[in-house]
Simulated scan of single mutants.
Amino acid sequence: MSVHYQYINAEQGTKTTIPDSLERLVKRHGTPLLIFDADVVRQQYCALINALPEVTPHYAVKALPFSPALKILHGEGASFDIASSGEISMAERLGISAKQCIHTHPVKKTEEVEKALAWGCRQFVFDNSHELTKLAHYKNSVKLLLRISFPNPYARVNLSYKFGCTVEEALPLMEQAKALGLNVNGLSFHVGSQITDPERYVSAIKTCKKIWEQAKTLKLAPLEILDIGGGFPVDYTAPVAGINDFCAQIRAALHSFPQAQFISEPGRFLVASAMHSISTVVGIAQREGRPWYYLDEGLYGCFSGQLFDKAEYPLAIPAKRLLQPKEPSVLAGPTCDSIDIIRDGIELPQLREGDLIIAGGMGAYSWAHATEFNHIPRTQIVVINDIEPLPSTGTEY
């Protein structure tokens, strides 16, 4: 008899679903377990292409550096955003062409640049004068996108805090690049992670348009590419706007932009909803009048996204438990560290040892952050709904 599960911290309308094959997969593989749904990745990629038909998505590998994810997106025709030598090696092993990739890290070691060039990647990003001096040694080989900073306090992660030049610095940096013989062929920006207001993109596009036109007037660079970054929102514990409606203002802004090649760097949007975590209640205790439920997955594992990505994942428990009264409880992870608390004060009915806890939206910045602290192995990933057989465990970057 199948056990039904119900979300306890997600608003009605959240789109995350629980795979029908859950019990079979748990029986076969045990827990903790991650279920990666290939169909969801394809659906998300198709939705983004339809929402922004003039923009070429470059999947941000850092969101989920899992070989089957890259294979699926490669099969769909995606390009890739890589930011390290390790990600280059992964793409190379999978047969992804360097011509489909851009290297988006604004600050790179010389060895990183040389590895990318040896592979065949020519498109890089910069945002400061020192980086230009470094890249001048490769002026006959590299093309550069200048990353502009657009700080956004409303983003889940403000990606203009660490990288991006100010608007005022843009033209002087392009002048320096020209003096060094470097080819700046475009502009880029990232307005932040999990954005809910498309006006942030619109404002950035309008500002880039002004810089673009000034640079062309001053003959500073043969600009060709505008990279609008990532940050497109997905459902977690509350529903967000559909991607087509969300992108309506972005489409309009791009239509008024000078002729250019438009690209983006989606990560979360493509993979977040494609993965579920399944963990088991392995221990129960009463501490200071509250029940504590210890799971075999925690903050040092796939719930690391709560620390690094400020994520709150929708959690589901056996629906039959919800017939019982709730009380403030604690969900704790499996390590010996007291920081390893998944939820403190969450209202839960009485759970039992062996109950399964399901977390949705775990595809982005969760497994990618996970460690093997306490010598607990990283969680196994099982791929479902794929066209051809793929590795069932995620052990390589």
Rank of each mutant, 00 (worst) to 15 (best):
S2V: 14
N9G: 05
R24L: 14
T31C: 08
Q44W: 02
Y45E: 03
Y45F: 15
E54M: 14
P57T: 09
P57Q: 05
A60V: 12
A60E: 03
A60K: 08
V61H: 12
A63D: 10
A69M: 09
K71N: 08
E76R: 03
A83C: 10
S85P: 06
M90T: 11
G95S: 06
E114L: 10
A116V: 06
A116T: 09
L117D: 00
D127L: 13
N128P: 05
L135N: 00
A136D: 04
Y138M: 01
Y138H: 13
N140I: 02
V142A: 06
V142R: 02
L144I: 04
L144T: 01
S149R: 04
A155F: 04
S160N: 09
F163Q: 03
T166E: 01
V167N: 05
E168H: 12
A170L: 01
P172N: 12
L173R: 00
L173M: 06
K178D: 12
L180V: 10
L182A: 12
N183R: 13
S188E: 05
F189Y: 12
G192C: 05
G192H: 07
T196N: 14
Y201P: 00
Y201I: 02
V202R: 03
I205F: 03
K206Y: 14
T207M: 11
T217N: 09
I225S: 07
I225F: 04
D227Q: 00
A238T: 08
I243E: 03
C247M: 04
L254E: 10
Q259I: 13
Q261M: 11
E265S: 12
A272W: 08
M275W: 04
S279L: 08
V281P: 02
V282Y: 08
V282K: 11
R287N: 13
R290S: 15
W292K: 01
L295Q: 05
L307K: 15
P314Y: 01
R321P: 04
L322V: 02
Q324F: 07
K326S: 13
T335C: 07
T335G: 07
T335W: 01
C336E: 11
S338F: 14
D344P: 04
I346L: 04
D355Q: 15
D355Y: 14
L356W: 14
G360Q: 01
Y365P: 01
E372P: 05
H375D: 15
T393W: 00
T393I: 08
G394L: 00
Y397V: 06
